[in-house]
Write a protein that binds this DNA or RNA. Sequence first.
DNA 1: GATGAATGAGAATTCATTCAT
DNA 2: CATGAATGAATTCTCATTCAT
Lengths: 206, 206, 206, 206
Amino acid sequence: MAYYREEQPGDDSRSKRQQILEAAYTIFSQKGYHRATVDEIIALADTGKGTVYNYFNNKEQLFYTLIRERSQPFETALQQASDADMPTLEKLEAMVRLFLKFYKDNASLWRVMMHEIRGFGSEGLSYVKTETRERYREGFNRTIGLLAKVLQEGIDQRLLKEVNVTHASYAFFSVIVALTFQQFIKDVDASAREVTDIFINGLALK
Amino acid sequence: MAYYREEQPGDDSRSKRQQILEAAYTIFSQKGYHRATVDEIIALADTGKGTVYNYFNNKEQLFYTLIRERSQPFETALQQASDADMPTLEKLEAMVRLFLKFYKDNASLWRVMMHEIRGFGSEGLSYVKTETRERYREGFNRTIGLLAKVLQEGIDQRLLKEVNVTHASYAFFSVIVALTFQQFIKDVDASAREVTDIFINGLALK
Amino acid sequence: MAYYREEQPGDDSRSKRQQILEAAYTIFSQKGYHRATVDEIIALADTGKGTVYNYFNNKEQLFYTLIRERSQPFETALQQASDADMPTLEKLEAMVRLFLKFYKDNASLWRVMMHEIRGFGSEGLSYVKTETRERYREGFNRTIGLLAKVLQEGIDQRLLKEVNVTHASYAFFSVIVALTFQQFIKDVDASAREVTDIFINGLALK
Amino acid sequence: MAYYREEQPGDDSRSKRQQILEAAYTIFSQKGYHRATVDEIIALADTGKGTVYNYFNNKEQLFYTLIRERSQPFETALQQASDADMPTLEKLEAMVRLFLKFYKDNASLWRVMMHEIRGFGSEGLSYVKTETRERYREGFNRTIGLLAKVLQEGIDQRLLKEVNVTHASYAFFSVIVALTFQQFIKDVDASAREVTDIFINGLALK
DNA sequence: GATGAATGAGAATTCATTCAT
DNA sequence: CATGAATGAATTCTCATTCAT
């Protein structure tokens, strides 16, 4: 019935918030948390300074909101993949694929986040309480935990050696992150296969 | 036996510099680069603020000097290990051991360093020029390059598969770093064996 | 022996702090607490912004330090007067004289102080805790309490009616403050006599 | 009996204005002028921010309108009392009663008002010009002037000593204000009698 | 060389006010 | 009229760096 959909009206009000989040994404990714200034963000978002503080309590909360909104779809997808009814090793590869894809897209910001997750709000100088920070840390650990769970499945099925799954999952995870941070990933599917293969079969020639 | 000992004057001046570097190590490790203040450092070093600026041009140079002086012995040792006349896989494990030991001791500061190495001096606001920063990045890449070199040896000797050695060396490296950052390493020797084994032989049960 | 005394050296280091306090006195008196800006204060004190924060934690503490340092000599003098061995009514007049003198000189700032003493630090947004504020309120009440004590003496000696001394002392005090705030006081001695006379003997013609 | 009642439209528009004034009364009384925010006022008034600016030019004018509307009935009543045909001393007591009643009810806001009346519009930063402010100061002085007028009557009738009536009226006024601000007033009638008695007859035992 | 008082550029945050709907 | 999202001027406070002693 409607020949076209008005993009602006609905968008516009959300748009400001969205514009700010997008600008924040860019600036935080480029500069890190501390070197990024609210002035830079509003310049890029083409908005006023007050507007930022209408939508977010402070710089820190802006940062965390950004992280949360970006990670949620990924976390959901990963959860689903880990629950899928599928041969364990294929499932592992699928999860590696999701990780690679997500970190390929968000490498810069996540690098910043992983660094900041430690230091925030040490003192009471911050609106974001230790609990909030803790929540993010947990979210973080949860995704790695999904890897551990699947690795444990592999062990239970006598597919994998009896290694410390926590260590192994962190190892897996760190390799994924390192390759994306180094921008070594071009083809996600191929890389997922490569990474999984090395971890499962090792570097040694049989 | 020694007729004289270098007295305070010489000692003292080196001592001041050393005290500052040691305090800086502690503070930077605890707080990260931005949250660390020169005031905290001098409080811990028990020295005056001007003294810091007698020995170092600015906060950034203090930070980099710290990194350089701490990493040099490690880089030398790693270089020697990589040149050693030894079976390749044993050499690899020896190098992993060196890495683990170094990062276990310096995890906090290196975590900070790896984060800061990106953004410094982007603008002309800094005494530390892009070249300087680049030098550090190179130093960093050089150590990983030593791993790559040994992996290549392994491939040439038909011990290892023909994988991309750059990727593989970064993977190796990232796992080492992740395990130390997570404080998973208790016994360096055992961990070195474990890590090397997984990478060489994989997780799969034969 | 010394023909002249160096004014600067000793003064200079205290001078900055003193300059700031004096400028703060002027600006706070003129504008009140909120309308006064640190920028105005440093402009008048001819100093840098950071210097203010070297000597005082924040604007609030600057304000309270000002109040404390100004009121202390007065409080001491008033205490002594109230303890003096002297006929009660003369003592009362002497105290009124001290009050008038003090408020004549400090009317503006005290007006501000009396207003602000209520609202500060309601939330945890302030370095100055409720206790600190409470301390000032107490100091304030203490001086009025000295009046009450002497009025009670007068009652005990059957010189004065049995009125509520708390009410009466506040009444006394408020008249003193009102007259100074209205700048009605020219000759402190004469006014002290006038005020005391009215309170003791009333307005009625015998 | 009433054929029609002014319906919502008329009501509503006055109601909005009234709601705002009532909320403003509460917030200004609690927080003082500067710490009160328009946001708090509209939250309490349950209205939009723009609405405030439909009825009032700015925060300052809102404040002054509040003062004016609250004080008008009082000023009228006081005027009438001062014109009443009644023995002077009884008239004085009646006026004291009116003052006490008014300040008992409005202590908090008037406390704020008396503080703010000084600094407003010092610079050209404000819509409220010096004249406007001056008008309020005059209104203030006028009420005190009514006291002075009656005191002068008493003097003319040889009931009171020949004191400076301006000083005396301010003294009277300040005592009333002090007692209400200290919340010492429970029974207005009794307090009016007490205050008048002390001023007329003094504290001394005959 | 050592020191620390003085400095001011820079950053986050607040809040009265406007204006398009 | 009523609304509230958008705005930016104004303000406080921090902290690296300088420089006279």
